[in-house]
């Protein structure tokens, strides 16, 4: 049984700390972008990561993607992937080890499609650049594989002969999804893949990512600040605040029974068509990662804060099956939106 549990998780992050350490003309700065995160991602699930700008979520996925560059470095902890080719700890892996898993086992969908697609190369050539070596295929066989994969994404084979600028924004993002998934990776990191898209296209692209994920049985870490995207995409959601994971749980529970005041606020502040009641706004500003508040980092903005919150860091504790929160007063957190009320309005 223990063995089974182990095999269930494809990614295990333990006590991860990753800091930016810089020095400019005598000004030393240490930005604790990822500060003690422990979490797991299971096989065949979409794990949503939510966080605001400068919450450290982008830094966190840089570590997951093994894309660290000085002055950003892992200070402590491990990031272990359990791939079919064998386990890898990317916090402590050689370039050759990372090269061996990239695209084949671990791939990414990025925000700007133009940063992945070379503007002066046809899409087909870009596919060759990225995927021919990891797939170990050449010529006709390679092309057949790519075309059959694009079919699944409802993309015509013609796109291989097109230049990126000839495609619409939605098509380009679908091509980048195609690039990220053509090797059938076990783990995909999607970093705000739909933020730049219009609402209609966004929904199409999201459902595409979901379909591809389900068809391949891969795991996806889906990062976005938009909670309504998580509501529709993720199986589980983790909330990052000031470099720490403050709550994680099954999507439905996160929305309707949040156990952290920050999550409760994020969910409640989403306006809905059909509801004009005053929405609460959270005061204060997101903390600086260079000088985070003591104790619970959310305490300066928290409506429930007590003296203990100012001094003691709350541990991430399990409060329901699969549901962990880092709050001293989690029992007092009230959901600000109830599922019944919401459905009542819709009906």
């Amino acid at each position: 049984m223990a063995q089974d549990n182990k095999r269930r998780d494809i990614l295990t992050v333990e006590g991860l700390k990753a800091y930016y350490q810089m020095s400019y003309f005598g000004v030393d700065r240490e930005v604790r972008a990822v500060d003690d995160i422990t979490m797991t991602v299971r096989r065949n699930e979409i794990y949503g990561i939510a966080g605001e700008s400068s919450s450290g979520k982008t830094s966190f996925i840089k570590v997951l993607a093994a894309a660290l560059r000085p002055p950003f470095r892992v200070v402590a902890g491990s990031v272990k992937y359990d791939f079919s080719s064998g386990p890898v700890d990317v916090a402590d892996a050689t370039d050759a080890q990372i090269e061996a898993i990239r695209w084949r086992h671990l791939s990414y969908i990025m925000q700007g499609s133009m940063s992945v697609l070379n503007p002066v190369r046809r899409i087909g050539r870009t596919f060759e650049d990225f995927a021919a070596r990891p797939l170990g295929l050449r010529g006709k066989a390679f092309e057949e594989r790519v075309v059959s994969h694009l079919e699944k994404l409802k993309l015509p084979a013609d796109v291989l002969r097109a230049y990126p600028h000839e495609l619409s924004g939605g098509m380009r993002q679908r091509v980048t999804i195609g690039l990220a998934t053509v090797c059938r990776p076990e783990f995909i990191i999607a970093d705000e893949p739909t933020t730049a898209l219009d609402v209609v296209v966004q929904k199409e692209v999201l459902s595409l990512i979901r379909d591809v994920q389900q068809e391949m049985g891969s795991s996806v870490v889906f990062v976005t600040h938009d909670m309504s995207v998580h509501a529709n995409m993720a199986d589980r959601v983790g909330i990052i605040y000031a470099g720490r994971l403050v709550e994680e749980g099954p999507t439905r529970q996160m929305f309707f029974a949040p156990k952290h005041p920050y999550t409760a606020h994020l969910v409640a502040s989403l306006p809905r068509i059909g509801d004009t009641t005053q929405r609460p706004a959270l005061e204060g500003r997101p903390p600086s990662l260079a000088a985070p508040p003591s104790g619970c980092r959310f305490h300066p903005r928290c409506p429930l804060a007590i003296d203990k919150c100012k001094t003691d860091v709350p541990p991430l504790q399990t409060v329901a099956p699969d549901h962990r929160t880092a709050c001293w007063r989690w029992q007092d957190v009230q959901p600000l939106v109830s599922p019944h009320a919401a459905h009542g309005v819709m009906a």
């Binding site: 609402v199 938009d226 309504s228 509501a231 529709n232 999507t251 439905r252 996160m254 809905r272 068509i273």
Partner: peptide, 8 residues
């Protein structure tokens, strides 16, 4: 519009 009514 992505609704949160049927989250999950």
């Amino acid at each position: 519009v992505l609704s949160t009514e049927d989250a999950g």
